[in-house]
Design a binder for these strands. Structure first.
Lengths: 113, 113
DNA sequence: TCGAAATATCGGGATCTTACGATATAATTA
DNA sequence: TAATTATATCGTAAGATCCCGATATTTCGA
């Protein structure tokens, strides 16, 4: 999973955007985001904090699946979590997610909204 | 792969960003983008057109693998391709990719650049 | 302390992805 | 036509992902 190859810079594109390590990291994060339930969770969490159960209900999945999705996103540093009594509230830790979701909504959102 | 479920809108988040179909579509596209070689190809192609062989060399993969990656991205409508003699030149078809890559570079690019 | 509620983890089976070698197709040149 | 170059496709095996049921863990209330 940790693709840590050292790559020579090709001929036509010197210093073109991200280096290979950054690309591998970015790919990991995109893969983590690339699931409808997880996208939905991010979308919801950008508007405030939610418990696991609430997210599960919104996404219509079992709560232990929500837990799993949240674990994956937390591993990428996307989320915060705070326990309050029996509940655990999740929130957004990665500020860039807002821009990214805006890009995605710009591409996939219906024009009439 | 075609997750076409009809989902009820939950309680706390009415009309929150994208609906389920759009999320599934977005997830597909993100998954397609979520590979270091494919990200690199998009990065390169945003600066001009490239042949399969050039892309393969830049990404240090075999050209038949480049071909495969390009096929996946074309299936999402990301790319254009034009044959010229023996070569096939690929380019960017989806204008939103530029914004998306900027978001990604904003997150993963080194601060000093 | 016991039971219930909320969340997390484990083990497994089905499905998908990835990269490979081999092969096929298309266009060019000898 | 035959050989060469560029690109695409096929079959496949290893590995990853997804979702499930079952089971743990943590916290609260009776």
């Amino acid at each position: 999973m940790a693709t840590t190859k050292t790559r020579a810079v090709g001929s036509r594109a010197r210093r073109h955007g991200l280096d290979w390590d950054a690309l591998a990291q970015a790919a990991e994060c995109l893969k983590t985001l690339a699931h409808p339930a997880r996208l939905r969770m991010v979308q919801l969490l950008l508007s405030g904090r939610y418990t696991v159960g609430e997210l599960a209900e919104e996404c219509e999945i079992q709560s232990h699946m929500a837990s799993e999705h949240l674990r994956l996103m937390q591993r990428c540093g996307f989320l915060t979590s705070v326990r309050e009594g029996r509940n655990i509230f999740y929130g957004i830790a990665e500020p860039h997610l807002e821009n990214l979701m805006r890009c995605i909504e710009g591409r996939f959102g219906r024009p009439g909204r």
